[in-house]
């Protein structure tokens, strides 16, 4: 009886531990032991690139629009140059990020507000450039999924999780913990660029961008 009770407690303990592990909050990131954090950056291009994407934008209320997005980037310099075009090839918007400053080169109505420029370039940065500095915490789960968390001085956080096989997810949270952006990067990856990606913005404005990689180059 005593042996049976011991076995019972052991089984319960194992189950409790297993369930406890399985129910760890998704965003509970604990420091890992590996000093090699390259996995935290694997979802982003490592070398200078240029790319062309089809962008299908859906704004709250059901407004739908299709555009072409051209981007050239240099990760080491944290430089970006982005152009939005109509399917006919007409430039609607052009801006660059250099030395941390955004410069608008061309912007037509309704793409000519400072808020649009800032928001678009922040989205492009979130998608293509890994967060600055080292992650505050990280972990590798048993299934190979990596999670890395960056914290900004203003209290906002960026979480990158996934794998090259399963794709990556980027979560951007404000200083209250609310998700402001969610990006899904799905392979195959070409020069570090996802073939398919979706960005969902929740605040201050709600919209969704679905992007398909059409062309890439050095």
């Amino acid at each position: 009886m005593t042996r049976r009770r011991g076995l019972y407690i052991l089984v319960l303990s194992v189950l409790a531990v297993s369930l406890g592990c399985a129910r760890l909050p998704e965003n509970s990131v604990s420091p890992g032991s590996s000093p090699d954090l390259s996995f935290c950056y694997a979802g982003f291009p490592a070398e200078p690139w240029e790319s062309v994407h089809k962008i299908e934008a859906t704004i709250r209320g059901g407004v739908f629009s299709t555009l072409l997005g051209v981007t050239r980037g240099d990760p080491s310099e944290r430089r970006l140059h982005s152009i939005l075009l109509t399917p006919e090839g007409f430039i609607l918007f052009e801006a660059e990020l250099r030395d941390g400053k955004i410069r608008t080169l061309k912007a037509l109505t309704p793409f000519d507000s400072p808020a649009f420029t800032r928001g678009l370039m922040e989205d492009v940065t979130l998608i293509f450039l890994c967060p600055q500095g080292k992650p505050a915490s990280w972990r590798i789960k048993g299934d190979g999924t990596r999670t890395c968390l960056w914290e900004s001085p203003d209290g906002s956080r960026t979480e990158v999780k996934g794998s090259m096989e399963l794709g990556w997810q980027i979560l951007r949270r404000d200083n209250q913990g609310g998700v402001t952006r969610e990006v899904s990067l799905n392979g195959p990856f070409v020069q570090g660029l996802a073939s398919h990606l979706e960005l969902r913005a929740f605040q201050p404005a709600a919209y969704e961008l679905r992007m398909t990689l059409l062309q890439t180059g050095p």
């Binding site: 240029e50 062309v52 051209v70 050239r72 152009i83 075009l85 090839g89 062309q215 180059g217 050095p218």
Partner: peptide, 15 residues
């Protein structure tokens, strides 16, 4: 066949 050449693209956008 439309070839769109942009300063930041090495190869033209073909449509």
């Amino acid at each position: 066949l439309q070839k769109r050449r942009l300063q930041i693209l090495k190869d033209p956008l073909l449509s």
